[in-house]
Design a protein around this nucleic acid. Sequence first.
DNA 1: CGCATCGTTCAAAGAACATTGGATAATGCG
DNA 2: CGCATTATCCAATGTTCTTTGAACGATGCG
Lengths: 104, 104
Amino acid sequence: MPTIHHPELDTVPLSAVLAALSDPTRLEIVKRLDESGSVGCVCADIGVDASKSALSHHFKVLRQAGVIHQEPQGTARITTLRREELDGRFPGLLVSVLSAEGPV
Amino acid sequence: MPTIHHPELDTVPLSAVLAALSDPTRLEIVKRLDESGSVGCVCADIGVDASKSALSHHFKVLRQAGVIHQEPQGTARITTLRREELDGRFPGLLVSVLSAEGPV
DNA sequence: CGCATCGTTCAAAGAACATTGGATAATGCG
DNA sequence: CGCATTATCCAATGTTCTTTGAACGATGCG
């Protein structure tokens, strides 16, 4: 398995982050990761209704947008939010998205 | 010309707003509108490099996402940001987007 | 009225995106 | 080793988005 690539947040365009977060499935993934805290999540156990391939795709999009971090652990991958880094690059963005009320 | 429809912000999904803002052209439009303040902008004078039709399309997307308000004035339309309303529905979101540094 | 201005609408084309199913790779356990 | 688990990759399909150019509609001015 090739090393997982995580982009420098300084190089990530704002539009890429917004695009990554603009999909309801991915928004739900991010919310689950937020609830899981620093413990992180195994992709398969995220509890989002989507096929294995679709999930893999969405995680890839989120990773390339600098939203999440993935660490191999056994056959699984522990996924966490890049909270502090994101908040450094886009202050207030993640919090406003995570705390939004109403329809997703 | 039919009355321009502006959605109630409570009914606008977060993902719709993020999708509207995730396009670089539309992000630039929003930034110009922010600079114009409460005075507003005439679409054609927005100074964004896009065709008339493309601009109309982008304004429509932004309007349907509740991001902008348009008011007929003569043959033109005065466009303004729905700042306060947006900040009520998604506290901190617009500010974080508008004040973001780095690549768009 | 005649005409220019500003914007919307329509159809068409191309690009980008989401989803699926099957194949593949890597790890850990018995 | 053989097998289950976890996740990625690939090709294919269908959908959505973006853009263009042409046609149309509404408004205001002379």
